[in-house]
């Protein structure tokens, strides 16, 4: 823990994650980013709450309630896109004012500032590009297709729109032969990757927050690199196996599969920027 006083001694950061009751990988990135941010000494406190793990979103009255120096709490959803969770579930469960960015808490006199989700940050495109290049070092982009995978469908979920937008931006910023947004449950389906592309190399980056069920168990099956869902990421990690088998030869191509974008360490920077940006909008736009 840093010894110097935090840069924002009156401010706490609260990261909101989805979490899971069956698999530790879902909440792991939020917890890891929280620990990394704590070490930087920016905020007085850094905590997490989850929809499906402890502490629960419903536990908010029990957070930051011992320290009268904390005057404001920045709430940053660690979610890929605006949607049902960020617009409905999180404000409802955290008791936030649905019509305002700032909620004044009676009792503690804290202001709780609701910030945009991480997926909205402009740096997301560069992170996806960096991830794609890291997983397939040295491949010629002109001979490579880049596929961004989103969830698709779901409850008022805009993750499909977000993945499409990222694909457009990546097309402008890179030299890949093609950049496509694909989905698990709606066309263009990631399962059709071999017919969607015609390059010798294919790089797949999941536009997900964690290596939970989807990116670690479902997508590998849809890609054809696993025949059935396997053990969770944490179980296999402990067994020494990670995304270590790139590239795989399938359908006469070299397929490179990355872990979920949300496990990227730079996500911590984005979380911090979403929080500080909401406190000082002028700083956010110049960043």
């Amino acid at each position: 823990m840093p010894d110097a006083p935090p840069a924002h001694p009156d401010t706490a950061l609260l990261i909101v994650g989805h979490g899971s009751t069956v698999n530790p990988d879902s909440g792991a990135p939020s917890l890891a980013h929280a620990a990394a941010i704590r070490k930087r000494g920016i905020f007085a406190r850094v905590g997490c709450v989850f929809w499906k793990e402890e502490p629960s979103l419903r536990d908010w009255p029990f957070l930051f309630n011992d320290d009268s120096d904390i005057r404001q709490v920045c709430v940053v959803p660690n979610f890929i896109s605006e949607g049902y969770f960020t617009r409905t579930v999180i404000p409802r469960e955290l008791g936030l004012d649905p019509s305002a960015a700032v909620t004044h808490r009676v009792g503690t006199e804290q202001r709780w500032v609701y910030c945009p989700p991480v997926g909205n940050h402009p740096a997301m495109t560069d992170l996806l590009l960096q991830r794609a290049r890291e997983v397939a070092p040295g491949v010629r982009e002109e001979e490579t297709s880049l596929l961004i995978v989103g969830h698709g469908t779901g409850l008022n979920d805009n993750s499909a729109v977000a993945a499409k937008r990222q694909a457009e931006l990546l097309r402008e910023r890179s030299r890949y032969a093609a950049v496509l947004s694909t989905y698990m449950e709606e066309p263009p389906l990631i399962a059709d990757w071999a017919t969607l592309t015609d390059t010798p190399n294919v790089v797949v980056v999941p536009f997900f927050i964690s290596d939970g069920l989807h990116s670690y168990q479902d997508i590998p099956v849809l890609l054809g690199i696993e025949t059935e869902p396997t053990a969770s990421a944490s179980e296999r990690l402990r067994g020494g196996e990670v995304f270590a088998q790139n590239p795989r030869r399938l359908h006469g191509r070299s397929l490179y599969y990355a872990s979920a974008i949300g496990t990227e360490a730079h996500f911590a920077d984005i979380i911090v920027e979403q929080a500080l940006g909401a406190l000082a909008p002028a700083v956010a736009t110049s960043a």
Binding site: G47, E54, S56, D59, P61, D66
Partner: peptide
């Protein structure tokens, strides 16, 4: 911090 990680939000609940 350690107790928060072992037993999330439980110290705060007890305080309330």
């Amino acid at each position: 911090l350690a107790l928060e990680l072992f037993y999330p939000a439980r110290l705060g609940a007890w305080r309330v």
